[in-house]
């Protein structure tokens, strides 16, 4: 299946939970936030929300910045 992750296409073998995707990407779930089809997910739901074919996922973290 194919999803869009941070604007780029990503091929995955099949549906995955958000937690599993973060593990696969080697990302620390405590330091990121995830938007799934335009809805920001609560961390408590990472184990249950499943990402399916065609979904849009954004994963963000904090970076240095002051303004603009």
């Amino acid at each position: 299946m194919k999803i869009t992750l941070n604007g780029d296409p990503l091929e995955l073998p099949g549906p995955v939970t958000v937690s599993a995707l973060l593990v696969q990407l080697e990302l620390d779930s405590r330091r990121v936030a995830v938007e799934h089809n335009l809805t920001v997910l609560k961390r408590a739901t990472y184990d249950t929300v499943e990402i399916r074919d065609g979904d849009q996922v954004e994963i963000v973290n904090f970076v240095g910045g002051g303004s603009a």
């Binding site: 941070n6 780029d8 990407l25 990302l27 990121v32 963000v60 904090f62 910045g65």
Partner: peptide, 11 residues
């Protein structure tokens, strides 16, 4: 301190 929110860098 202020921080910006940006897409994570992916391999």
């Amino acid at each position: 301190v202020t921080v910006a929110v940006r897409r994570v860098k992916l391999p």
